[in-house]
Each structure stands twice: as C-alpha cells, then as structure tokens.
Design a protein around this nucleic acid. Structure first.
Ligand SMILES: Nc1nc2c(ncn2[C@H]2C[C@H](O)[C@@H](COP(=O)(O)OP(=O)(O)OP(=O)(O)O)O2)c(=O)[nH]1
Ligand SMILES: [Mg+2]
Ligand SMILES: [Mg+2]
Ligand SMILES: [Zn+2]
Length: 572
DNA sequence: GCCGTTTTCGGCCCGACTGTTTTCAGTCG
C-alpha cells in the first residue's frame, strides 16, 4: 500500500469526523495524513523495519494512528474507516472538488437527498431540490451549479511558469491605482512552488473600497466569489482564482507573512507566539491589545526571536528551528549566476543561432554560455555526430572572435545516455569539449536497478561534467523515471559530477527535495535554462528559485563562479 | 488524536465572507 493511499484513507477519516462535528480530531488526522504524504520513504518499509515504534516517531502520528496504519498495511483495509464510510457512503473526494462544498453540506445532501456522487448532486441541483433544504437556498444551489460547471472544465494546478507573467501584469495594474500604496503577490507564488493553486495578492491601502471595486471588475473576471472590506476573491476566464487582501501599512508585514504561508509555517509561528503568551494574526503580533510587530516581516521574525526566513523556505520543514538558532543557510540570490550551461541552438532542435544566443546572453549580463546541442541518437532533432559537432566548433570559434571577450562561448553537448549507459559520442570527442552534459532521452521505463546502473555508468565517465535534468520528469505530463536518486547523488559525489537544476518551467529537475539532498551530500549543482530559443534564457529565475527551495547557497552552484573558477570545478 | 523547558492533562492558529439565519454555521484563506 503506497504512502498516498494510506494518506488518503487517514485524511478521509478526518473529513468524516469533521462531518460529525467532532472537535480537534479532524485536524489531528489531517496532520497525520499530510505527514505520511510528505514522507520520502515508504510507510510500509518504515513499518517493516521498525514496527509501530517507528511509525510513532513520525511527527503527527501517535499510538492510535500508528495502529491504524499497521492495519492498513497488513490487511489493505481499515475497519474504523469502513464504519465511518458506511454512515455516509459518498464519493467524498469527488464531491469535495466542488468549491464551497464542505463535509457538513455533503452529509446533509446525502441524508436529505441521497446525494452520493457528483452526478447525483447535479441532478438534485437542476431539479431545484437543493434550494428547498433547510439552511440552503436559491443562492447556495446556484453556487453549487457554478461549482459543478467549473469542475467540468478544471484542469488541475497550472505551472508556476504559466501564471507568473499574468501575476506580474495584475500586480502592475493594481500598482497603477491611486489608492494603492503597495502591491505584492504572496502565497505559493512568492514561495516559488512549482505549481500554483491560485494567486494571493496583498495590497496596502487606507481606502480598500475602491481597490476592491477595481479588482472585482477587471476584464478577465468571470465570477466574483467574495467581495468584502478587507478580502475579495474572483475567478478569471482561464479558471484561475485570485484572492486579494487589503490591509493598512502598520499590518503589512504580518499580512504578508500570513498570505505567503505556507499554512504549516503560519500555524507553527502562531503556536510560538501563543507559547509566549502573545497572539499572531494577519494584523500583527500582539501582547494583549499592544502591537509588538507587524509593519515588516523582518520585525515580526525578529520579535519572535528568529532570523528572517526567506519565503522559499517557509514550508515548516525545519526552517523555524534553524531561524531560532540563527543557523539558516544564506540562500543563493537571484542575481548570483554568471552563465547558462544548457542551450540548444538551430544546429538541432533549438530555434536560434549560436550568434544570436551569444548576443542575447551578453544583453542579460552573462559571462559565459555553453552550447549543448543534442547528439545523433536523437535523430528527430538532427542530433550531432562526431563530424558535425566539429563543424559546430568552427562556428563557435567564428562567433567568439566576432563578439570578443565580453562572453565566453563554451563548446558543449547534451550527449545522449544510451540504454546501456554508454554515451552517444566517442570519448575522444567528449574529451575535447569545454563542458560535457549528458542526459537520458530514451528507455524511460527501465527497471529501477537497470536505470540506476545506466546513469551511474554514464556519470562515471571521466569526460562527463554534468548530468542534465537528472530525473526526466515533465510536471503534470510525465513521471520521473524510476531511479535511485540517493545512489546517483552518492556517485556524483564520488566522481565529482555536477547535477543540474534544469530551470525549464515544466521540468524543474532536480526539484527542491533533491537539491536539499545534494546540498547535504556536498554535491555541486548547476542551474541552466535548457533554452530552445532566446526567450527561454529568462527561465534562470525558476531554477534559482528551485535551488533556494532546496536551501542551496551560492557556493553550492557552480555557475555562480566566474569562468576560471567555474572551469576548475569540472572534472579534469 | 497528538503533544510537552510553561503542561503527561488540557490545551489545540486565527480571522473574513457568505447565506440563511434572528444570532451564526460553514467554508475557506
Ligand atoms: N494561519 C493560516 N493561514 C492560512 C490558512 N490557510 C491558508 N493560509 C495562508 C497561507 C497560505 O499560503 C495563504 C494562501 O492560501 P492558499 O490556499 O492560496 O495557499 P497557497 O497559496 O500556499 O497554495 P496554493 O498554490 O494556492 O494551493 O494563506 C490557515 O488555515 N491558517
Ligand atoms: Mg494560493
Ligand atoms: Mg488563495
Ligand atoms: Zn532539445
């Protein structure tokens, strides 16, 4: 039984208890479910090796839930869950996808109308039966209908890269309003999560009314979900929700901290405040009626006795303890990169010429770039063979001469790792390159052991400098191939191979959790755009963000160095 | 149900908006 399956059952128990109005337990189950879902080892294995005791070691899991997990692992079933489900036998996860519909409403709809599924609910709403229920009415029925309509079109969480440009436009638009003193996008976007559930916008203003009116009447708005004095929410035609919070200047820091989250980070801070006899909310940190902090986030963390925590770290995964001990890492900054080490040109499947990339890189302040076209096995891209890549070197030399010393153009490759772990170009050719990147582009479905052996063999090659997009995932489209990342990281450490953080918004590969492991292991990383056109050169920030989410410092990333120092970090 | 240099018992983050309601529950952030 997978972690996700266990987590789902535990979470459902929480929802059923919530339905019955049981206090506190729902949160306990919710927390436990999240703990299981976030585990990076398998619960079954944890139980197999350490038994109940090991399960109870997981924060949020105590004796009672540990026993339930044991039953799930042993029998594939949980009597307690089955019993709760028998009382209200509905498609809970399906119905919960309807915005605004919570456990209490679902229970009522089942008991009064026999609604078990989304389809049942649709029939009941269309027949006007929902509006007749006590505590429901015409508007609740209408909202359910709208929710059902939206659910049919819903397409899941969009990529950060797909919403960031829109978010920045909305930010600018609000900034143009005269009542607006400050605007900032908070929420998961400020934490640079790889996918985004909604936009959370914070505005400072003395006059919220006009700001709210402007916000809910933006042209893209198709539905006003809420329209209040301090908070509004809308749905855009793209399906994206946008929340707006407006506060006075003296609450800016506290409100930004609240709206940035994560929820778990917020709750942990609020518990800290509570333990000191204080109260933390979005208006400030208070001792009785007196505001101790709230105008800035820096002040808020300081008064709580912590160092400032960067938004990318606010996931309640240990950052709070480090901040209290003043031991937070100093994260790599958004201006710290000197160059880009993965670029595909029109020699293969890229859209632009070496020369135009060089000019664009100079405009962006890069000191070096690596030209890393595909190799011959990727025939559909016109991948380079040993002969053709030598021709490319001549062109690189020509462009280098033309542009002079402003930018170093490195001769590189994104050489295919073949099925057996050998490489698509011969060693003599690889040895003559400035930067040799290798990557898996085929046989994604090899068994874990074989895939791991294949990649290890490739990076053990003394000519190989960097492993590009190490897990091969495409967010929302393709799962990472099955590979033992711990073994790859270990080998990278032993061989001095660099692992890449591919910044392309649908890759972000390595992702934050793997970056964290590399940092701990002392494996060096590179941040590259994987550009296939000049516009893609701007993706570096997504890679930097992922590095920051993995707690990487400047020194962990090789292309923060100037050329000479950077080249020294590659294999001899 | 979980958890602990304020507690092994008694707390549990805190607030906004809506809709249906004569005073607040439900849902969400
Ligand atoms: N204190 C507190 N803050 C919360 C709670 N729920 C949400 N928040 C805060 C933290 C969140 O980051 C912020 C925005 O809420 P969202 O639901 O939009 O979450 P977030 O943006 O983190 O993720 P998302 O990508 O939108 O799913 O509001 C809560 O229950 N308590
Ligand atoms: Mg959000
Ligand atoms: Mg939100
Ligand atoms: Zn390519």
């Amino acid at each position: 039984m997978s972690n996700q399956e266990v987590a789902r059952i535990i979470a459902e128990i929480g929802e059923y208890l919530d339905m019955e109005g049981v206090p506190f337990k729902p949160r306990a189950y919710e927390k436990a479910a999240k703990a299981v879902g976030d585990l990076d080892k398998s619960v079954s294995e944890i139980y197999a090796s350490g038994g109940l005791k090991a399960l109870e070691q997981i924060p949020g899991i105590g004796a009672s839930i540990a026993k339930k997990i044991e039953e799930l692992i042993k029998t594939g079933h949980l009597k307690y869950h089955d019993e709760l489900k028998k009382k209200v036998p509905v498609d809970l996860s399906g119905l919960r996808k309807i915005e605004g519909l919570g456990p209490k409403s679902i229970k009522k709809l089942y008991e009064e109308l026999g609604v078990k599924t989304v389809a049942d609910l649709e029939r009941a709403a269309k027949a006007g039966r929902v509006a007749k229920l006590e505590h429901f009415g015409a508007k609740s029925e209408e909202n359910i209908k709208k929710g059902l309509e939206f659910l049919k079109k819903a397409t899941g969480r969009p990529l950060l890269g797909a919403v960031l440009p829109l978010a920045r436009r909305i930010e600018e638009r609000l900034r143009g309003q005269k009542e607006v003193e400050k605007v900032i996008i908070a929420g998961s976007l400020r934490r640079w999560k790889e996918t985004i559930g909604d936009l959370d916008v914070l505005v400072v203003s003395k006059k919220p009314g006009p700001v709210m009116d402007f916000f809910v009447s933006m042209p893209e708005v198709v539905r006003v979900v809420a329209h209040g004095e301090t908070k509004s929410a809308v749905k855009l035609e793209s399906g994206l929700n946008v929340d707006l919070r407006v506060v006075p200047a003296e609450s800016y820091g506290a409100a930004l901290n609240y709206l940035t989250g994560s929820k778990d980070h917020n709750v942990a801070l609020r518990e800290m405040a509570l333990a000191k006899g204080w109260k933390l909310n979005e208006y400030g940190l208070f001792k009785g009626k007196k505001q101790l902090a709230g105008r800035t986030e820096e002040e808020l963390y300081a008064v709580l006795g912590m160092d400032y925590v960067e938004p990318e770290m606010r996931e309640n995964t240990g950052e709070i303890e480090l901040a209290k001990k003043h031991k937070l890492p100093k994260l790599i900054g958004y201006d710290d990169l000197q160059g880009d080490l993965q670029i595909q040109t029109d020699w293969t499947d890229g859209a632009d010429t070496i020369e135009s990339y060089a000019k664009a890189a100079i405009e962006r302040g890069h000191k070096y770039i690596a030209i890393t076209d595909h190799t011959k096995r990727l025939a559909m891209t016109g991948g380079l063979d040993e002969k053709k890549i030598r021709k490319q070197w001549v062109e690189i030399d020509r462009v280098q001469k033309k542009i002079g010393a402003k930018l170093k153009i490195l001769k590189g490759t994104e050489c295919d790792i073949l099925k057996d772990g050998s490489l698509d170009l011969d060693d003599e050719t690889l040895a003559r390159l400035d930067v040799c990147g290798v990557a898996v582009h085929s046989h994604f479905d090899l068994p874990r052991e074989e895939q791991t052996k294949r990649i290890i063999r490739a990076i053990k090659n003394p000519n190989v400098d960097i492993l590009f997009h190490p897990t091969g995932r495409l967010i929302g489209k393709r799962e990472p191939y099955d590979v033992d990342m711990d073994a790859i990281i270990k080998t990278a450490k032993e061989t001095g191979t660099i692992l890449e953080i591919d910044a392309f918004p649908d890759r972000l590969d390595l992702k934050d959790e793997h970056v964290k492991k590399c940092v701990v292991a002392g494996v060096k990383l590179s941040i590259d755009t994987d550009a296939h056109s000049i516009a893609h050169l701007d993706f570096l920030e997504y890679g930097i963000a992922q590095a920051r989410r993995g707690w990487a410092e400047k020194s962990d990333i090789i292309n923060t160095r100037l050329l000479e120092a950077f080249l020294k970090l590659l294999k001899k």
